Computed example of a mutant assay.
Amino acid sequence: MGGKFSTFTADIGIDDEVGERGFLAVFQVWVDGIKVHNNSKVTGADPAKKVEVDISAVIVK
């Protein structure tokens, strides 16, 4: 990333078409083998959730 970015953002969720039948999903963010975000658990009944992770300290090898 070369220091060009400081934040990773994403909207996560399960497609609306599955409704309440959607299984539990866990979304994680990994940077260079390091987990920097965890536990965004959603089901098909949940609305999309916003994830925002500070990546300003990430060192690219």
Rank of each mutant, 00 (worst) to 15 (best):
N39D: 14
N39E: 13
I34R: 13
W30Y: 14
V36E: 07
D11P: 00
E20I: 06
E52R: 05
F8V: 00
D54C: 00
D15S: 13
E52A: 12
A57N: 11
I59E: 08
G3H: 11
D54Y: 05
V18G: 05
A57L: 10
G44Q: 07
D32F: 10
E17V: 14
R21Y: 15
T7R: 00
G3N: 08
G33N: 14
K50S: 09
I34S: 10
V29L: 00
V31I: 11
A48F: 09
Q28W: 06
I14N: 02
N38K: 15
N38Y: 10
T43Y: 07
D46G: 01
G22K: 01
I12N: 04
G44M: 03
G3W: 07
S40K: 02
S56Y: 03
A10N: 04
V60E: 14
K4Q: 10
F5S: 09
S6I: 05
S40Q: 06
V53Q: 00
A10G: 03
K4D: 08
V51G: 10
K61F: 14
I59T: 04
A48Q: 13
L24F: 07
G3K: 05
A48R: 14
V26Y: 02
S6P: 02
K4E: 10
K41M: 00
F23Y: 14
K50N: 11
I34Y: 09
K50Q: 12
D54W: 05
N39M: 06
K41V: 12
V31N: 01
T43M: 09
I14A: 04
F5P: 02
A10S: 07
K50E: 12
G44N: 01
V53S: 10
G44S: 12
G22L: 05
A45T: 04
I59Y: 04
V29C: 08
A25C: 14
R21E: 15
V18W: 14
T9V: 13
V31F: 06
